[in-house]
Write a protein that binds this DNA or RNA. Structure first.
Lengths: 157, 157
DNA sequence: TTGCTATAGTTGCATGCGCAAGTGTTGTAA
DNA sequence: TTACAACACTTGCGCATGCAACTATAGCAA
């Protein structure tokens, strides 16, 4: 078996390789749609989490998506600038903030949901419903198995 | 159903959301391992493709991984600098280059394969073999269904 | 030929991101 | 009460990346 055969086999059978391609494809699809709302992928992610849980601290937001503190901080700068969230004083701590969606923030929730639904539909358009369900179950299983150290950073590209 | 319930439902059931998390996790795992070889994720990807197929043009490399031309160009700058690939004159075109792995490039192939294998093993460590196979099949099906326009760029972050 | 369009690859510039260091606050223990 | 460590968050800086513009070559048609 030649090096090139081996390399081909390694790459083609690599689940990670395929996941990366799909993830990048999803990134671009999401970005196309988010551009209309002037949101980036990180700000979108933070906005969804704030809408989901209501008032919470930045550290809590970070834990929900494994996003480093500085990224949350910057995403909130942008969201606040756009008037979608507020940083209020925290009830019991003066170093933490209580992050809340504004009325404008809540107003865009339906559009965000629609975008997620569309991209998901597109993703699974080639699958039967049963396959799509099985796929989701496997993804959940993989996520649960991963050791999620508080995940301070480390990215790529 | 409140906005926050709806948002939670939308996000938690989102396959894209889960794929993104897994992809980022894989990114960081790969980067940890590639650091020892002084490779980035893009240079690693290009290197694997060159090893897999032997001499080819930059455009051909790009098509294999949906990577924009400028990214190939820069990845090759780095790989050439490290002595892993060469840009030779193309047999029939003076504007294209023939990209080839050097002896040093071929020499690191086993280490690259090992890294891919390790990361894959870790990824599927929570799955049965049958589940892992099914997962791979679903990924392939999704990739085949996606419309891969030559994919000039469009990323995120 | 000449001119036009498409292709192959490169690069300047601005933006975004990660790292590590910095500010201010809280807990805790001598 | 003072000192020190942990915590919550922010920010300066440098590197990587995306976009768009650029050079050079090839194909093609009049």
């Amino acid at each position: 078996m030649s090096i090139s055969d081996h390399t081909r086999g390694t790459r083609e059978s690599s689940l990670g390789w395929m996941i990366q391609r799909i993830a990048r494809h999803l990134d671009s699809r999401m970005n196309e749609r988010l551009a209309g709302l002037d949101l980036s992928l990180p700000t979108f992610a933070v906005m969804m989490i704030v809408l989901e849980r209501g008032p919470m601290t930045q550290t809590e937001i970070g834990k929900r998506f494994g996003m480093p503190a500085y990224a949350i901080s910057r995403a909130l700068d942008a969201l606040q600038e756009q008037g979608f969230v507020e940083r209020r004083a925290h009830a019991t701590s003066r170093r933490a903030h209580s992050i809340q969606a504004t009325a404008a923030g809540k107003a865009i929730a339906p559009r965000l949901h629609a975008i997620v639904a569309e991209v998901n539909a597109e993703l699974t358009s080639g699958l039967e419903q049963s396959e799509s369900d099985a796929f989701g179950a496997l993804l959940r299983k993989i996520l649960n198995a991963q050791t999620y150290a508080p995940t301070e950073g480390t990215r790529s590209q």
